[in-house]
């Protein structure tokens, strides 16, 4: 009895710790007037409308979504052939590319960001929007690479063998057997990287921060010049997008397996 109670208490405390800042931000975001008070005074959803109505916020939203959609597409285009090659061929030295794909994510982000800053400044392209797209693609290639590697590892090789003995060549096997099997992993890899790209600040800031505002950059700039409730509503918007995406992955895929729980059956 006491054990159960203590466990519940523990879970509740952790949940409160994780939720408290978000609850306050959600509360602040529905203030009727432009003030930072909690509990909110009055109720208004106007600040959510601002994200789409205010030209500056709308532009930042468009930038962020464009950046995420394009960069993650490139990241997947890099990760898919690489993961397929590593699964299909025995070439130990090719693992160096896997390490290169994982490195930007393991190192502190400031380092990768500064690397991009010095690089784009040196080649004279600093500040162009497409530089941020390429930078994000490299920075987030880790996620599709990891999910796709998991996906390939989960393929039963006898299935592929069966297709091959019946005369399917590499291309046919890839199209009819491999791709359908790894599609869920491809989609979750894209989704993971998409959400993170949407939220990313430092790489975007160091590549295009002086010329273009993405949503996180806009929030930070607004934060330095004072307070507007739109910052709160955008934050809630971000939490909602993340919860929606990860919720869908959990609903349609196996999130526990993606996160490393080997036995997706049983338990």
């Amino acid at each position: 009895m006491t054990a159960t109670f203590l466990r519940r208490l523990y879970f509740t405390v952790v949940a409160l710790f994780l939720a408290a800042p978000l609850i306050v931000v959600a509360g602040v975001s529905v203030n009727a007037r432009q003030e930072l008070t909690f509990p909110p005074k009055g109720f208004s959803l106007a600040w959510y409308g601002q994200i789409f109505a205010d030209p500056e916020w709308r532009l930042a939203l468009i930038h962020s979504v464009t950046l995420a959609v394009c960069s993650v597409a490139i990241a997947v285009a890099i990760a898919l052939p690489l993961a397929w090659f590593l699964w299909r061929r025995i070439a130990p030295w090719a693992n160096i590319f896997q390490v290169l794909g994982l490195a930007p994510f393991i190192l502190p982000p400031v380092i990768t960001a500064l690397g991009f800053l010095t690089f784009w400044a040196t080649v004279g392209l600093f500040g162009q929007f497409f530089t941020a797209i390429i930078s994000h693609a490299i920075f987030f290639v880790t996620l599709p690479l990891v999910t796709l590697s998991l996906g390939f590892a989960s393929i039963d090789r006898s299935l592929v063998e069966a297709a091959a003995t019946m005369g399917a060549d590499d291309r046919a096997v890839l199209k009819t057997v491999v791709l359908p099997l790894i599609l869920p992993y491809l989609v979750s890899g894209y989704a993971f990287a998409f959400v993170l790209s949407l939220n990313e600040y430092i790489v975007a800031y160091m590549t295009i921060g002086f010329t273009t505002e993405t949503l996180p950059i806009k929030i930070f700039n607004a934060l330095r010049y004072g307070y507007t409730p739109t910052m709160a509503s955008v934050s809630v918007f971000f939490v909602a997008v993340a919860a929606l995406v990860f919720g869908s992955i959990a609903r349609f895929g196996d999130i526990r397996r993606l996160l490393g729980a080997m036995s997706s059956e049983g338990n």
Binding site: P21, V24, L196, Y201, L223, F238, F246
Partner: peptide, 26 residues
């Protein structure tokens, strides 16, 4: 799902959320 949602949040948003939680007015 909840943990991933919090983990994916921008450092900007986390900073803003905590500065609100620790502010005098809210």
């Amino acid at each position: 799902v909840g943990l991933l949602s919090v983990l994916s949040l921008s450092e900007v948003i986390i900073g803003f959320a905590w500065s609100t939680l620790f502010s005098q007015t809210a």
